[in-house]
Design a protein around this nucleic acid. Structure first.
Lengths: 316, 316
DNA sequence: GGACGATCATTACGTTTGCTTATGAAACAG
DNA sequence: CTGTTTCATAAGCAAACGTAATGATCGTCC
């Protein structure tokens, strides 16, 4: 079996982005880290770390890292099983050199809109009951599953319905994106509705360059597919990579854009936003992907996320 | 992580039914096996092997054995993954469209906290009057100036006071970060205040791995610099790369963390958050960097941002 | 009951592993 | 080109770990 002191050295180098920082975290010298990494690379016959600034993992290194995280989760389970009497852990005075009861850090990828809406409420009870720490990566909903596939995260919220190799995939529900604008904005830029000419002139806002929802919306609009390309190429676009600011920009009448119904409901009720294309919502289906590995922590997180999402998201 | 040489010794003893046989299988002496088993039992604080004839596992030993098998399976998978030459995966390339002449897209880098607070209000009037589109990049406040230096953005909000080559740099003001927690959280984890022991146990939340504010805070705390390193290395940390969710996590009593005063003011007034270290705010000074190139749009943006920031941010 | 055999624990000592300190090499910035 | 940063390598050394020998414990059989 692997010597996990070596594995952890590689993991630390990659997480910290360098041998020096890794050494500090591991309470070792840079030299020792270098030797450990080299030893493991020799043993496996593969380069695991790209020596650059910052240091990063090779494909093999990534796989090893994912493996290391899995084993870490398993060990957390084991520790819990071997320490059944760990009920009360209130901070009382004891030996400071004994590192406290270990926390487990769970790397999870989540799309910005979920993070801005239902996700925090879904994980809050989990964080209250489990000795776990979240390490969130925010990425586009179409790409979070890549982070999972490459072993960067143990779980992800994604639009991908197909399970990643070696992973579970559970449907969470549907979020409807509506094409919204402030009433003033609509009157100024779309006096005759969503005409092709108006679409080419009115400033729109999208999340970032990977955001596909706006384009999906244009595709389902009455104008034919022929005109779609022409429109899509000439859209004046704001890029605002923050869900909350995104909504603000639209609410303030600076642009129009595709907004998740949960985030828009209040604005719609108040009349601060209006639907530019009623009946043309873009439904985005979200899925929970996580390692197939059965671990009480992962299972608990999955349980919390899935059950909460199915309560608050639209179900088919 | 566990030392799997020790684990394998226990496994061998149980599988083989004795230390002697285990030693033969492991190509060791009986003494070595005995020492290894004892070492692991000491480490875990549990008896793993029932010394009888034949030797058998305790409940804890059985769990350890099951764990060992799981890790073995994972390692088999890993080995299979590292054997074959890595396939080629092509990252999907996106082709950003350049909008028409009348609209100018301004790439701007901004740190998340600014985006979550004063920045939108600062640029809103600018967007109303100018035919400009924003292309925001969110990055850590210590690194936004790098995006500027490398030509990725035309302007940036950064903590860097020194002007980038060929760029202007204007001070915007100061944001004070306070060490905050929910009252319940403070009572549970910091009954005696910010002691070293409590700091090592209580879960904290930081933005991401480049976030230095928390560490800066620890450095200015009463405990000497000597104890700082020890604390900093053993902090249980949540990573929540979203300003709004960051605050939520603290407000919900899931962790404590450094929060900009502007974002915390309402919570503090409501009593939902309390200051764990009054008088120990970490002041972060922000600067507006932009290309020296004189452009009416850039000048206008700079004008709006700087004047608004100087109104809402603390000035020296 | 006492001697014996089997089995694991302990002790003492020698080898080896693996860390630290010091220095070299390579990439990078200014 | 020079100083800086970062990783690799070399040599010395201490601690870890294994072996061999011995001690302790328990069950068995005469």
């Amino acid at each position: 079996m692997l010597d996990y002191r070596l594995v952890e050295a590689v993991a630390a180098v990659i997480r910290e982005g360098g041998f020096e920082r890794a050494a500090r975290v591991l309470h070792l010298t840079q030299s020792a880290v270098s030797q450990r990494v080299k030893a493991l690379e020799d043993q496996l016959g593969t380069v695991l770390v790209v020596r650059a600034t910052p240091a990063r993992a090779t494909d093999e290194g990534r796989r090893l890292l994912a493996h290391c995280d899995k084993v870490g989760l398993l060990e957390t389970d084991l520790a819990a099983a071997l320490r059944p009497e760990s009920g009360s852990d209130s901070p009382d005075a004891d030996a400071p050199d004994i590192p406290h009861i270990p926390w487990t850090t769970l790397p999870v990828a989540v799309n910005a809109d979920s993070l801005a809406t239902w996700f925090p409420d879904a994980v809050a009870p989990f964080l209250r009951t489990e000795r776990a720490l979240l390490d969130l990566s925010v990425d586009d909903q179409e790409r979070t599953h890549l982070l999972l596939r490459d072993g960067h995260v143990a779980a992800a919220v994604s639009t991908r319905a197909a399970a990643v190799q070696g992973c579970r995939c559970l449907p969470l529900g549907r979020v409807d994106y509506l094409c919204l604008a402030a009433p003033d904005f609509a009157a100024q830029w779309f006096p005759a509705g969503l005409t092709e000419a108006a679409l080419c002139r009115a400033p729109a806002v999208i999340f970032n360059r990977a955001d596909e929802v706006h384009h999906q919306f244009l595709r389902v609009l009455p104008p034919t597919a022929a005109s779609f390309d022409r429109i899509a190429r000439s859209l004046p676009l704001h890029y605002i990579p923050s869900s909350e600011r995104f909504v603000d920009v639209v609410a303030q009448g600076l642009a129009y854009g595709m907004i998740p119904l949960p985030q828009a409901r209040q604005h719609l009720a108040d009349g601060r936003l209006i639907d530019l294309a009623p009946g043309h919502a873009v439904p985005i289906r979200l899925y929970w992907h996580c390692w197939g590995l059965r671990t009480s922590l992962l299972d608990a997180l999955t349980q919390h996320v899935v059950s909460h999402a199915r309560q608050v998201l639209a179900q088919e």
